[in-house]
C-alpha cells in the first residue's frame, strides 16, 4: 500500500522529529501514571486542541498532509508529468515542508504537540498514476488550504498568530493558482473558488478536517475543541 509517512525523511529531519518527540513522550508517561482505579479512556480521536494553539495545530496538520502528498507524488511521479511541472511540484513541496516545520516548531515552543510522528498519512484511496490525476489532487489540496485559512483566520485571539496565518494564507493561494494554471489557465480564480462578491471561498475547520481525515490514521483529527465563533 502506498504510504507517504515520514519513513523516508532525511536524517536531519529525523533528528528533529526525535527531539520534538521527547516532550510529548514525557507527557504520555505522565498521563499513564494516573489513578489506577480510573480507567484512562482510550483516545478515539487526535484532538487538535483549542484556542490559538488549536488553530496553529489545525494548520500544522493541514500542512503535514499536504507535504506528505507532494512527497509522494514527487518521489514517484507519473511518467506523463513533464519535468518542468515536476520541478514546480517540488518547489511547492519545499514550501509545505518549511511551513509545516515552522508550525511544528512554534507549537513545540509553546509546549504544544508539534509532533509529526504518530500520524500515518496514506493516499492509497487516490489514483495518482497520471498527470491529470496528480494535478487534480494537488488542486483540491491547495483549494482546501485556501478555504481553510480564509475560514479560520478570524478565530485567532492573538494578532501575532493571526499574522503568521496570513503570511501562509496568501502563499497557499499562489500555490492554488500555480497548480490551476497547469490544468486550465483560465481557472485561476474561477467561480468554484471565488464567489460572485469577489470573495475567496472559505471552509469551517470541521469541514476541512473531515477531508483531511480521509488520509489519516490511526486516529482521525478532531476539530471539536477549536474556536467556532
Amino acid at each position: 500500500m502506498p504510504n507517504a509517512s515520514f519513513s523516508s525523511v532525511e536524517p536531519a529531519r529525523r533528528r528533529f522529529l526525535r527531539s520534538a518527540g521527547t516532550a510529548v513522550a514525557a507527557s504520555l508517561v505522565l498521563a499513564a501514571c494516573g489513578d489506577d482505579n480510573t480507567p484512562t479512556p482510550v483516545p478515539t480521536v487526535l484532538s487538535l486542541g483549542s484556542g490559538d494553539m488549536g488553530l496553529l495545530s489545525y494548520f500544522l496538520r493541514l500542512k503535514q498532509v499536504q507535504a506528505a502528498f507532494y512527497e509522494k507524488v514527487t518521489t514517484a511521479p507519473p511518467a506523463s508529468l513533464p519535468a518542468a511541472e515536476l520541478d514546480l511540484l517540488k518547489e511547492i513541496l519545499l514550501h509545505k515542508q518549511i511551513q509545516r516545520d515552522y508550525l511544528a516548531n512554534l507549537l513545540s515552543q509553546n509546549s504544544q504537540n508539534g509532533l509529526l510522528t504518530g500520524v500515518e498519512i496514506s493516499f492509497s484511496s487516490l489514483s495518482l498514476t497520471t498527470r491529470a490525476e496528480v494535478l487534480e489532487a494537488a488542486r483540491k489540496f491547495e483549494d482546501l488550504g485556501v478555504a481553510a485559512m480564509n475560514g479560520a483566520g478570524k478565530y485567532f485571539s492573538s494578532t501575532t498568530f493571526l499574522a503568521v496565518a496570513s503570511r501562509l494564507a496568501s502563499v497557499e493561494a499562489r500555490h492554488a493558482t500555480a497548480v490551476r494554471d497547469l490544468i486550465q489557465p483560465s481557472s485561476f480564480a474561477a467561480s468554484d473558488v471565488v464567489d460572485a462578491e469577489g470573495l475567496g471561498v472559505s471552509s469551517t475547520p470541521t469541514a476541512v478536517v473531515t477531508e483531511l481525515n480521509k488520509y489519516v490514521s490511526p486516529l482521525p483529527f478532531s476539530a471539536a475543541s477549536l474556536p467556532n465563533s
Binding site: V146, M149, N150, G153, K154, S166, A169, S170, V171, E172, A173, R174, A176, T177, A178, D181, F188, A189, V193, V194, G198, L199, G200, V201, S202
Partner: peptide, 12 residues
Amino acid sequence: LQIHSVEARHAA
C-alpha cells in the same frame, strides 16, 4: 482575508 486570498490568486 477572503479578498486577500483572491488578490493572491490574481497576483500569481
